[in-house]
């Protein structure tokens, strides 16, 4: 059963970038949960009734790094299955490897992707996840 609107949680501590991502996603008809810090995101994790369809996660957050965040949601059954894409400006093989091992679906370099490209990737991943669930 398809949901009415897609919801994406964006976790990004750079204000301008969070704003741009939020604006573009909303422009495309996607509901956005904006999180300017890891803390804010985790609050959602603890308190939301329905989890978002996907998470757009920056790696270096001021209060924690992506690894810590991933570990937090993996322990939450409601959130553990949500597709995550990491949109970061640095990517070392170790980091990428660790994140992928923790269940991140894709790790992309921010500066090399347009917003519309990222949204396409998000939609693909969400569709895949929905297809998996429906099976």
């Amino acid at each position: 059963m398809a949901k009415a609107t897609t919801t994406v949680m964006v976790v990004e501590d750079e204000a301008l970038l969070l704003q741009a991502a939020t604006k573009k996603l909303e422009h495309e008809g996607i509901k956005v949960l904006s999180c300017p810090s890891g803390e804010a995101a985790l609050k959602y994790v603890d308190n939301l009734d329905t989890a978002p369809d996907a998470i757009w996660l920056d790696y270096y957050l001021k209060d924690m790094n992506g690894l810590a965040f991933m570990q937090a949601i993996k322990t939450n059954p409601k959130w553990a299955e949500i597709p995550v894409i990491v949109v970061s400006n640095s990517a070392s093989p170790d980091k990428v490897h660790n994140m992928l091992a923790l269940g991140v679906n894709k790790y992309i370099l921010k500066a090399q992707y347009r917003l519309d490209e990222i949204i396409t990737i998000l939609r693909e991943i969400i569709d895949d996840a929905r297809a998996d669930k429906d099976e």
């Binding site: 750079e14 301008l16 970038l17 991502a21 370099l109 917003l115």
Partner: peptide, 12 residues
Amino acid sequence: RTPLSAIKWYTE
């Protein structure tokens, strides 16, 4: 890369 990303996305 951070400000460059901002420029890229807003211009986009």
